[in-house]
């Protein structure tokens, strides 16, 4: 009886350990394989990004990006070389065609997944990058294609990066850091670097998004003060370095400073919608578009809730209540005072 019990317990324990596919050993092996594959893919990605940005990948930069030792990084490089994905030309690391394709797929999967999180889920912005870092290794090229189709073949990810196509190449990031721009020059924020995470989270918290129009008010060694979409922002230079901008020669600084948003509209005023801020995306954006908040629509304040928020607006013959966070994302131009 006792012997039976021990045998049975032994069988159950060893079964749980070595069972094919769902045993502890098999799971551990799979997790290890995934980690190794992820490391290889991350190295390829790093080399590709360096190539696009015109810098030279080194053993140290690889080890730093992947947070592994240089010895481990060397092992990974050797393995990639033996698989015919990478080659050395003197000191320089070069991607072979197969390696390039794999690296492009990883970048594409990452940026598609971020787009998916931004457009079709309510996952908060600060988590997009971390989740995409994991998902990029799990999506197959076919799944990535299906995802792209489902999203309507987006060209840019939510950070403003171009989503690469396979076959193709990674396009270098255009523009310059916000810091490099002289004061009082209108610019368009094209990209917000999502690494390192802590800095990105701070930029997100300030409400900064690609697509916003901005200009620098004043710069000093300690801080940079600038205007972006109706608000003044103050950032330390190390943070501002992660904002990439391009010049907007067709705009004047005064236009940007006088930009108005629906949240600022007073009772009795009438305005025309200019468009939605890029910070408004996904289901929220589609909903506002459906309700008629498109360029050219006339709006006016109908009434304000006794609690102070939301406010009801008159749009195309209906009355729609919006919360302040939403009405702050709708660009308007005030027309004339309506006599009540």
């Amino acid at each position: 009886m006792k012997l039976w019990g021990i045998t049975l317990a032994g069988l159950i324990v060893s079964g749980a350990l070595v069972w094919p596919r769902c045993g502890v050993v098999a799971r551990w092996r799979r997790a290890r394989q995934l980690t190794e594959r992820s490391q290889r893919e991350d190295v390829l990605k790093h080399v590709l990004k360096c190539r696009a940005n015109g810098t030279q990948p080194t053993l140290e930069s690889i080890a730093g990006t992947l947070q592994i030792s240089t010895g481990q990084a060397a092992d990974v490089l050797q393995e990639l070389e033996s698989h015919g994905l990478l080659s050395y030309e003197g000191e320089a690391l070069l991607l072979k065609p197969a390696g390039l394709e794999m690296a492009l797929h990883i970048v594409r999967a990452h940026r598609l997944w971020e787009s998916y999180l931004a457009e079709q889920t309510g996952v908060s912005e600060a988590e997009w990058h971390r989740r995409a870092e994991r998902q990029e290794h799990l999506l197959t090229p076919r799944e990535a294609d299906a995802l792209a189709a489902q999203l309507g073949h987006p060209r840019y990810d939510p950070h403003g990066d171009i989503i690469p196509e396979t076959p193709g190449d990674l396009v270098a990031e255009k523009g310059q850091p916000l810091q490099a721009v002289p004061a009082n020059t209108p610019v368009l924020i094209t990209h917000i670097e999502d690494e390192p995470e802590t800095i990105y989270a701070q930029l997100c918290a300030q409400g900064l998004r690609p697509g916003m129009r901005a200009f620098v008010i004043e710069k000093s060694a300690q801080r940079i003060r600038f205007w972006a979409d109706g608000n003044e922002h103050v950032l330390a230079p190390v943070l501002a370095n992660n904002l990439t901008v391009t010049l907007l020669p067709e705009y004047k600084t005064e236009d940007l400073a006088e930009e108005e948003f629906l949240s600022g509209l007073r009772t009795g005023q009438r305005a025309k919608v200019l468009g939605l801020s890029p910070a408004c995306r996904g289901a929220e954006r589609r909903r506002l578009l459906d309700l008629g908040f498109v360029a050219g629509t006339a709006v006016e304040v109908e009434m304000v809730s006794p609690a102070g928020d939301p406010t009801a607006y008159r749009v195309r013959g209906t009355v729609i209540a919006l919360r302040r966070e939403q009405s702050g994302l709708i660009r308007i131009a005030t027309e004339e005072a309506v006599t009540a």
Binding site: Q120, G122, A283, R287, L291
Partner: peptide, 15 residues
């Protein structure tokens, strides 16, 4: 648990 669910606000005030 509901952090990742889609969220958007709109409230129509019919006549």
């Amino acid at each position: 648990v509901l952090k990742g669910e889609v969220s958007s606000f709109s409230l129509e005030l019919p006549p």
